[in-house]
Design a protein around this nucleic acid. Structure first.
Lengths: 227, 227
DNA sequence: TAGATTGTTAATCGATTAACAATC
DNA sequence: TAGATTGTTAATCGATTAACAATC
């Protein structure tokens, strides 16, 4: 067996670039659906809502997938980005906490169509264990380790109340799940090497509110000064 | 009436700092609930999941609300941050699109408790207009302008399918709603001055998948080379 | 006063952007 | 070849961090 050099694995791609790759992928899928076969960096950038210099710089970290004077082949670039992100394969996912948000997540079609397969829904409440949501049985939270091992689950989604979230995260880590998407409004502490991303609805709204307030204050001020 | 200088309005606070203020606010609320009256930057930083240098730098944009040698008064700092974000007042919000996600959002208690009041739920589907979700009637989408004017709505939430989202955004802008939280997986185009934030569940998962893949590739490589 | 901790400085790091040489 | 567009360079901008003087 030949020892590989580090060149075989992904080069170091900046975090900001990684966060935009899925946006480019979505834009390319939309273009493909519209039967567009080729696009320039300018066109793709517009579809993705970024400027073209940033797009070209981002793509340059992946390799040279375009043709000067012509642009990018939509299908080819789409495949290369999907491969780089890792969504050419299917990732088994567990969702813990089947409240309103858990229901919404389980039913979200965007997961299945984009490389993710919900293999289990877990909830601590025994009253929910009879339910079937989006074609998947709700199972007791205790079965986490078993299910994770059985399906090789690498990604867990936490949609529980804030108080339960840390315990769920600990159990996920024990079960070998090292990537967690956390919807609970709490800061999780996890060992090194475990990757946590956080989505917080009320924080997003508060960031908007800050800007609304500034806009309102600015226009009130302008009005006052012109009076 | 005295003309005000620009010093009276908010200084320019970096975007990265603005995005963290709600996190600090939440940490302070948790500390207050635990009857903690004073905290150091180190303690608050730990609770918020950042390092203390960053926390102090962030707070320095708001003013000098701490006491050297002592730390911060939890209640006082909490109020100052809430005021800076603008959540000492209540913001009326409309949610458009009452599918699974819209339901989850309407029922999310974190809104009401953090300065936001859902004044209307709108959906284009007449079959939904009989429903009452979280104590609020679902109304026809056509009533957007009317409701926005009546309640002075400044913030709109889009939880529709991707195809409807641009139309909803256009109508929101017409109705004078200049801040939009978009859950639909699509890029919105809006006029200058309109603020759009985007939450995309499948993009967050894809970012996780990228890192899982890299971890997996790295350990497979290590194993191979050590063999 | 001595110890503790803030608020600020300055260095470093990473991300964005415009411009353009390379090249189809 | 002439026109178009990529991939890359280098300058700029903004964010992070460690260190410490100011000060309670």
């Amino acid at each position: 067996m030949t020892a590989r050099t580090s060149n075989d694995t992904a080069r170091d791609i900046p975090e900001a670039t990684v966060a935009r790759l899925p946006i480019y992928l979505r834009a390319l899928i939309t273009l493909a659906e519209d039967s567009i076969e080729t696009c320039s960096s300018e066109e793709l950038a517009t579809a993705a809502g970024v400027n073209s210099a940033k797009l070209r710089k981002d793509l340059s970290y992946l390799g040279s997938y375009g043709t000067r004077g012509v642009g990018y082949d939509v299908e080819y670039l789409r495949y290369q980005i999907a491969r780089e992100i890792g969504v050419t394969q299917d990732w088994p996912v567990v969702i813990v906490g089947i409240g309103n948000l858990g229901h919404a997540l389980a039913n979200y079609s965007g997961f299945r169509s984009r490389g993710f397969r919900v293999v289990a829904l877990l909830d601590a409440d025994p009253d929910r264990h009879d339910e079937v949501v989006a074609g998947v049985d709700v199972r007791p939270f205790d079965e986490l380790e078993e299910i994770a091992a059985e399906h090789g689950v690498a990604i867990g989604v936490i949609a529980t109340p804030a108080l339960a979230a840390q315990d769920v995260a600990d159990r996920m880590v024990t079960a070998g799940i090292a990537s967690i998407l956390n919807f609970a409004p709490t800061v999780l502490s996890v060992p090194d090497g475990v990757d946590v991303r956080k989505v917080d609805l009320s924080i997003e709204l508060q960031i908007l509110a800050f800007h609304v307030q500034r806009k309102t204050a600015a226009s009130a001020l302008a009005q006052e000064n012109s009076a």
